[in-house]
Protein backbone atom coordinates (compact mmCIF):
# COMPACT_ATOMS: atom_id res chain seq x y z
CA UNK A 1 0.00 0.00 0.00
CA UNK A 2 1.49 3.28 -1.05
CA UNK A 3 0.12 6.59 -0.10
CA UNK A 4 0.14 9.05 -2.90
CA UNK A 5 0.38 12.71 -2.19
CA UNK A 6 0.46 15.39 -4.79
CA UNK A 7 0.90 18.93 -3.65
CA UNK A 8 2.20 22.02 -5.26
CA UNK A 9 3.22 25.02 -3.27
CA UNK A 10 5.49 27.84 -4.39
CA UNK A 11 7.08 25.55 -6.92
CA UNK A 12 7.72 22.96 -4.24
CA UNK A 13 6.77 20.00 -6.32
CA UNK A 14 5.89 17.06 -4.20
CA UNK A 15 5.50 14.09 -6.45
CA UNK A 16 4.84 10.51 -5.64
CA UNK A 17 7.32 7.89 -6.72
CA UNK A 18 7.23 4.20 -6.11
CA UNK A 19 9.78 1.75 -4.89
CA UNK A 20 9.06 -1.16 -7.20
CA UNK A 21 10.46 -1.19 -10.72
CA UNK A 22 7.41 -2.89 -12.17
CA UNK A 23 5.42 0.14 -11.18
CA UNK A 24 7.38 2.52 -13.37
CA UNK A 25 5.33 3.77 -16.26
CA UNK A 26 7.51 6.74 -16.72
CA UNK A 27 11.22 6.79 -16.04
CA UNK A 28 12.82 10.16 -15.44
CA UNK A 29 16.44 10.27 -16.51
CA UNK A 30 18.89 12.89 -15.31
CA UNK A 31 21.34 14.31 -17.82
CA UNK A 32 23.88 17.13 -17.89
CA UNK A 33 24.14 19.13 -21.10
CA UNK A 34 26.01 20.13 -23.17
CA UNK A 35 28.45 17.28 -23.64
CA UNK A 36 28.56 16.86 -27.37
CA UNK A 37 28.06 14.33 -28.96
CA UNK A 38 26.84 12.37 -25.94
CA UNK A 39 24.15 14.85 -24.89
CA UNK A 40 23.49 18.40 -26.05
CA UNK A 41 20.81 20.80 -27.17
CA UNK A 42 19.93 22.10 -30.58
CA UNK A 43 19.37 25.87 -30.95
CA UNK A 44 15.62 25.47 -30.35
CA UNK A 45 16.37 23.75 -27.06
CA UNK A 46 15.71 20.13 -27.99
CA UNK A 47 17.86 17.44 -26.36
CA UNK A 48 19.86 15.18 -28.61
CA UNK A 49 22.99 13.01 -28.59
CA UNK A 50 24.10 9.40 -28.23
CA UNK A 51 22.86 8.98 -24.65
CA UNK A 52 19.51 10.56 -25.46
CA UNK A 53 18.89 8.39 -28.53
CA UNK A 54 20.06 5.21 -26.83
CA UNK A 55 18.09 6.04 -23.69
CA UNK A 56 14.90 6.60 -25.66
CA UNK A 57 15.44 3.34 -27.56
CA UNK A 58 15.94 1.48 -24.26
CA UNK A 59 12.74 2.95 -22.84
CA UNK A 60 10.82 1.95 -25.97
CA UNK A 61 12.19 -1.56 -25.65
CA UNK A 62 11.15 -1.80 -22.01
CA UNK A 63 7.81 -0.20 -22.71
CA UNK A 64 8.03 2.82 -20.48
CA UNK A 65 8.06 6.48 -21.40
CA UNK A 66 11.19 8.49 -20.74
CA UNK A 67 11.38 12.00 -19.45
CA UNK A 68 14.75 13.75 -19.48
CA UNK A 69 15.62 16.02 -16.60
CA UNK A 70 18.54 18.39 -17.09
CA UNK A 71 20.80 18.67 -14.06
CA UNK A 72 24.24 20.22 -13.64
CA UNK A 73 27.05 17.71 -13.24
CA UNK A 74 28.13 18.61 -9.74
CA UNK A 75 24.64 17.91 -8.42
CA UNK A 76 23.78 14.91 -10.56
CA UNK A 77 24.28 12.07 -8.06
CA UNK A 78 22.64 13.97 -5.18
CA UNK A 79 19.74 14.59 -7.58
CA UNK A 80 19.29 10.85 -8.12
CA UNK A 81 19.33 10.21 -4.38
CA UNK A 82 16.87 13.02 -4.03
CA UNK A 83 14.56 11.26 -6.47
CA UNK A 84 14.51 14.21 -8.82
CA UNK A 85 14.83 11.48 -11.43
CA UNK A 86 15.09 7.70 -11.40
CA UNK A 87 18.23 7.14 -13.44
CA UNK A 88 21.27 8.99 -14.71
CA UNK A 89 22.38 8.55 -18.28
CA UNK A 90 24.96 11.22 -18.78
CA UNK A 91 28.33 9.80 -19.82
CA UNK A 92 28.87 8.61 -16.28
CA UNK A 93 31.89 6.38 -15.83
CA UNK A 94 31.44 3.33 -13.64
CA UNK A 95 33.97 3.35 -10.81
CA UNK A 96 34.23 2.19 -7.23
CA UNK A 97 33.63 5.58 -5.62
CA UNK A 98 30.35 5.90 -7.42
CA UNK A 99 29.40 2.23 -6.90
CA UNK A 100 29.21 3.02 -3.21
CA UNK A 101 26.47 5.48 -3.91
CA UNK A 102 24.57 4.23 -6.92
CA UNK A 103 23.74 1.02 -8.75
CA UNK A 104 25.12 0.80 -12.28
CA UNK A 105 23.79 -0.95 -15.37
CA UNK A 106 26.21 -2.90 -17.55
CA UNK A 107 28.51 -0.51 -19.43
CA UNK A 108 26.88 0.70 -22.64
CA UNK A 109 29.97 2.28 -24.16
CA UNK A 110 33.61 2.45 -23.14
CA UNK A 111 35.35 5.56 -24.38
CA UNK A 112 38.87 6.45 -23.33
CA UNK A 113 39.93 9.82 -21.94
CA UNK A 114 42.30 11.85 -24.08
CA UNK A 115 44.49 14.96 -23.98
CA UNK A 116 43.64 17.65 -26.53
CA UNK A 117 45.90 20.56 -27.46
CA UNK A 118 46.07 23.19 -30.23
CA UNK A 119 47.53 21.88 -33.52
CA UNK A 120 50.77 23.78 -33.13
CA UNK A 121 51.47 22.53 -29.63
CA UNK A 122 55.01 21.82 -28.57
CA UNK A 123 53.88 19.01 -26.30
CA UNK A 124 54.89 15.64 -27.61
CA UNK A 125 54.10 13.47 -24.68
CA UNK A 126 52.36 13.72 -21.34
CA UNK A 127 54.53 13.66 -18.27
CA UNK A 128 55.03 15.59 -15.11
CA UNK A 129 57.91 17.38 -16.77
CA UNK A 130 56.16 18.36 -19.98
CA UNK A 131 53.05 19.58 -18.15
CA UNK A 132 54.96 21.76 -15.68
CA UNK A 133 53.48 25.28 -15.61
CA UNK A 134 50.89 24.38 -18.22
CA UNK A 135 47.24 25.28 -17.72
CA UNK A 136 45.07 22.18 -17.90
CA UNK A 137 41.30 22.33 -18.35
CA UNK A 138 38.94 19.75 -16.86
CA UNK A 139 35.27 19.58 -15.98
CA UNK A 140 34.72 19.98 -12.24
CA UNK A 141 34.00 16.76 -10.36
CA UNK A 142 34.72 14.39 -13.27
CA UNK A 143 37.09 11.42 -13.16
CA UNK A 144 39.39 13.49 -15.37
CA UNK A 145 39.40 16.19 -12.68
CA UNK A 146 40.33 13.63 -10.00
CA UNK A 147 43.04 12.08 -12.15
CA UNK A 148 44.67 15.36 -13.17
CA UNK A 149 44.39 16.79 -9.65
CA UNK A 150 46.16 13.78 -8.15
CA UNK A 151 48.77 13.29 -10.87
CA UNK A 152 49.66 16.82 -11.95
CA UNK A 153 48.07 19.09 -9.33
CA UNK A 154 51.46 19.99 -7.91
CA UNK A 155 53.17 21.03 -11.14
CA UNK A 156 50.43 22.41 -13.39
CA UNK A 157 47.58 24.94 -13.05
CA UNK A 158 44.21 23.27 -13.24
CA UNK A 159 41.19 25.24 -14.37
CA UNK A 160 37.91 23.58 -13.48
CA UNK A 161 34.77 24.27 -15.50
CA UNK A 162 31.08 23.72 -14.96
CA UNK A 163 30.41 22.60 -18.54
CA UNK A 164 32.47 21.21 -21.39
CA UNK A 165 31.37 24.18 -23.50
CA UNK A 166 33.07 26.70 -21.21
CA UNK A 167 36.23 24.67 -21.43
CA UNK A 168 36.25 24.47 -25.22
CA UNK A 169 35.69 28.21 -25.44
CA UNK A 170 38.70 28.89 -23.23
CA UNK A 171 40.70 26.45 -25.33
CA UNK A 172 39.79 28.36 -28.48
CA UNK A 173 40.77 31.62 -26.87
CA UNK A 174 44.12 30.10 -25.87
CA UNK A 175 43.54 30.45 -22.15
CA UNK A 176 44.20 26.73 -21.82
CA UNK A 177 47.27 24.90 -23.04
CA UNK A 178 45.70 21.49 -22.95
CA UNK A 179 42.55 19.81 -21.79
CA UNK A 180 41.67 16.34 -20.64
CA UNK A 181 38.28 14.84 -21.39
CA UNK A 182 36.31 11.93 -22.80
CA UNK A 183 37.62 11.21 -26.26
CA UNK A 184 34.26 11.24 -28.14
CA UNK A 185 33.44 14.63 -26.68
CA UNK A 186 36.81 16.09 -27.59
CA UNK A 187 36.56 14.60 -31.06
CA UNK A 188 33.17 16.10 -31.67
CA UNK A 189 33.78 19.55 -30.18
CA UNK A 190 37.44 20.05 -31.09
CA UNK A 191 38.76 17.68 -33.76
CA UNK A 192 35.65 17.85 -35.96
CA UNK A 193 34.99 21.52 -35.28
CA UNK A 194 35.43 24.01 -38.09
CA UNK A 195 37.05 26.55 -35.81
CA UNK A 196 40.68 26.03 -34.94
CA UNK A 197 42.97 23.10 -35.39
CA UNK A 198 43.42 20.60 -32.57
CA UNK A 199 45.25 17.40 -31.98
CA UNK A 200 45.37 14.54 -29.51
CA UNK A 201 48.58 14.45 -27.48
CA UNK A 202 50.03 11.30 -25.96
CA UNK A 203 48.14 8.11 -25.33
CA UNK A 204 44.46 7.75 -24.67
CA UNK A 205 43.82 6.46 -21.19
CA UNK A 206 41.54 3.77 -19.81
CA UNK A 207 43.87 2.76 -16.96
CA UNK A 208 44.29 2.81 -13.98
CA UNK A 209 40.80 1.49 -13.31
CA UNK A 210 40.57 3.26 -9.95
CA UNK A 211 40.26 6.48 -11.93
CA UNK A 212 38.95 5.47 -15.32
CA UNK A 213 36.54 2.76 -14.27
CA UNK A 214 34.76 0.38 -16.55
CA UNK A 215 33.07 2.48 -19.18
CA UNK A 216 29.83 4.47 -19.05
CA UNK A 217 26.87 3.05 -17.19
CA UNK A 218 23.34 4.10 -16.38
CA UNK A 219 23.08 4.85 -12.67
CA UNK A 220 20.12 3.93 -10.48
CA UNK A 221 19.31 4.13 -6.80
CA UNK A 222 20.58 1.07 -4.95
CA UNK A 223 17.11 -0.16 -4.15
CA UNK A 224 15.96 -0.13 -7.79
CA UNK A 225 17.62 -3.40 -8.77
CA UNK A 226 14.70 -4.61 -10.86
CA UNK A 227 14.72 -1.44 -12.94
CA UNK A 228 18.45 -1.78 -13.62
CA UNK A 229 17.87 -5.38 -14.68
CA UNK A 230 15.22 -4.30 -17.18
CA UNK A 231 17.64 -1.82 -18.70
CA UNK A 232 20.38 -4.46 -18.92
CA UNK A 233 18.07 -6.84 -20.76
CA UNK A 234 16.91 -4.11 -23.12
CA UNK A 235 20.52 -3.13 -23.83
CA UNK A 236 21.29 -6.74 -24.70
CA UNK A 237 18.38 -6.82 -27.15
CA UNK A 238 19.36 -3.57 -28.83
CA UNK A 239 22.91 -4.78 -29.29
CA UNK A 240 21.64 -7.95 -30.97
CA UNK A 241 19.04 -6.41 -33.27
CA UNK A 242 21.38 -3.76 -34.67
CA UNK A 243 19.66 -0.70 -33.15
CA UNK A 244 22.71 -0.01 -31.01
CA UNK A 245 25.06 -0.03 -34.00
CA UNK A 246 22.78 2.31 -35.88
CA UNK A 247 22.75 4.86 -33.06
CA UNK A 248 26.50 4.45 -32.61
CA UNK A 249 27.09 5.19 -36.28
CA UNK A 250 24.90 8.29 -36.07
CA UNK A 251 27.31 9.96 -33.63
CA UNK A 252 30.72 8.39 -33.89
CA UNK A 253 31.33 7.65 -37.53
CA UNK A 254 32.79 10.11 -40.01
CA UNK A 255 30.40 12.81 -41.11
Amino acid sequence: MKKVLTLSLLGLAIAATSAQAQDYEEVRIGVDVPYEPMEYRTADGELTGFDIDLGNALCDEIGVSCEWVVQGWDGIIPGLMARKYDAIMSSMTINDDRREQVLFSDPYITPPSAWFAPGGTELEEISEESLTDMTIGVQRGTLQDNYVTDMYGDVADINRYATADDMVLDMESERLDILFLDFPVGKSTLLDSEEGDYTVVGEMLTEPKEYFGDGFGIAFRQRDEALAEQFNEALETLREDGTYDEIYARYFEAK
Binding site: M1, K2, K3, G11, L12, I14, A15, A16, S18, K84
Partner: peptide
Protein backbone atom coordinates in the same frame (compact mmCIF):
# COMPACT_ATOMS: atom_id res chain seq x y z
CA UNK B 1 5.66 3.93 4.24
CA UNK B 2 4.72 7.46 3.24
CA UNK B 3 6.48 8.20 0.01
CA UNK B 4 6.69 11.90 -0.57
CA UNK B 5 9.36 13.71 -2.44
CA UNK B 6 10.09 17.37 -1.94
CA UNK B 7 12.12 18.74 -4.74
CA UNK B 8 14.45 21.64 -3.93
CA UNK B 9 14.90 22.64 -7.53
CA UNK B 10 16.90 25.62 -8.73
CA UNK B 11 13.88 27.86 -8.67
Amino acid sequence: DIDIFININEF
